[in-house]
Design a protein around this nucleic acid. Structure first.
Length: 372
RNA sequence: GUGGGUGUAGUCAAGCGGUUAAGACACAGGGUUGUGGCUCCUGCAUUCGUGGGUUCGAUUCCCAUCACCCACC
């Protein structure tokens, strides 16, 4: 018995989109789902009760960051991550694999693991499959991710093949080292870059380990949109239908639609909260760069079709003023809106799948949303 | 009224005789996708209060003038 189980409820008649449910020790999650990112045990600028109230079913936090600060032992002493940050719904933790990729410069990858320098104080650390499991076990998140290597783009076939094979070996070590299987489930991560046969090889290797869920990693790392969609097309088919499929790091509305259409169940992304902090909103009419001078005297709502707290109570002119004045409330209100927007977009997608009109729903959205 | 000082972009300012006048902030665009991000990138003075003069050449020196500031009557 694993901590996480997947229930397939319905598959769309005209696409690979599917409606499902992931059962976790902290409640069940209706899928497809968007997971807000809370790297340092907090969804930046948001209170947990707000995140919960807008309908977030699961959030993501991060092994690398919590290991460095405050330290996983402290989180464990606090009673685990859920209690520490006061979030009683599901939590997924990333393994630190992506930081190995994004920190780039000061790191050394070996078979044992990755040696890197802390971005906080420069101190030297080693992250390995065993260490990542130790940290994630201490955090107590419901879904824990395998410690993988995310190959950069572009990367040649030889590099990607070696990297994916090492990721499989690391996955076996993760499975071996993972201790709390009763309350935490380990998801494997497919790699393979932009090469179809390598994606296939990676899938075969990780699926053989019969894990509770699988993620597609190594996408949205700078490749063209069309290429990502193409890789996604066949990659999803290599994963079992009776397990949740998670596309890592994707979160713009168009990517979410294209992912769901191809059979993805879970997404996470820093995009909504990051662009919120930098003065941009996602709305039903498209992207709104609230800091632009055009909104100086625009007293209308950010998104006239949105029911979120921000849209119901404040004008674009006020939001622009808050941003230009560097007010904390700016990050709070825009993050609130962007997260609400994506969460409700997923609500709409789920409903559309149930009614077999996912493609129509997608078309309607694109017609209004326009570019990105 | 007398003496002194200052006038360079929206603001604070560097430059003080020599090719395209630092920088910061502000302002204006853009970026952002398993968060090293209240961040990053780009743009923004044919012109140095005004008028003369000296000089091959002046934002830089001289004179006048205007504005503002300080001190003393």
């Amino acid at each position: 018995m694993t901590a996480i189980t997947y229930e397939l409820i319905k598959t769309d008649q005209k696409s690979k989109a599917r409606r499902g449910r992931v059962h976790t020790p902290h409640g069940s999650i209706e899928t497809p789902v968007f997971m807000p990112v809370g790297t340092a045990a907090t969804v930046k600028a948001m209170r947990p009760d707000e995140v919960k109230q807008m309908g977030a079913q699961i959030i993501l936090s991060n092994t690398y960051h919590l290991y460095l600060r405050p330290g996983h032992q402290i989180v464990k002493e606090a009673g685990g991550l859920h209690k520490f940050m006061n979030w009683d719904r599901a939590i997924l933790t990333d393994s630190g694999g992506f930081q190995v990729f994004s920190l780039g410069d000061l790191r050394k990858i070996t078979e044992e693991g990755v040696e890197f320098r802390s971005h906080i104080d420069g101190s030297k650390h080693m992250l390995s499959p065993e260490k990542s499991m130790e940290v994630q076990n201490a955090l107590g998140s419901d879904i824990i991710m395998a410690f993988d290597e995310c190959a950069p783009y572009p990367a040649d076939r030889g590099y990607v093949k070696n990297s994916l094979e090492r990721t499989t070996r690391w996955l076996k070590r993760c499975k071996e080292a993972h201790e709390n299987t009763e309350i935490q489930s380990l998801f494997g991560i497919m790699q393979g870059g932009m090469y179809q046969n390598l994606r296939y090889q990676s899938a075969m290797e990780i699926v053989e380990l019969d894990l509770p869920g699988y993620a597609i990693g190594g996408l949205s790392v700078g490749e063209p949109k069309e290429l990502m969609y193409e890789v996604l097309d066949y990659s999803v088919d290599y994963l079992p239908a009776n397990k949740p499929r998670y596309l890592m790091g994707v979160g713009s509305p168009d990517y979410l639609f294209e992912g769901v259409e191809r059979g993805i169940d879970m997404f996470d992304c820093v995009l909504p909260t990051r662009i919120a902090r930098n003065g941009t909103a996602m709305t039903s009419q498209g992207k709104v760069v609230i800091k632009n001078a055009a909104y100086e005297r625009d007293f209308s709502a950010l998104d006239p079709e949105c029911e979120c707290y921000t849209c119901k109570n404040f004008s674009k002119a006020y939001l622009r003023h808050l941003f230009k004045s560097n007010e904390i409330l700016s990050s709070m209100l825009l993050s609130n809106h962007n997260l609400y927007f994506l969460i409700h977009l997923m609500d709409g997608m789920r409903k559309a799948i149930e009614e077999d009109r996912f493609l129509e729903f997608k078309k309607e959205f694109y017609n209004k949303y326009g570019k990105l």
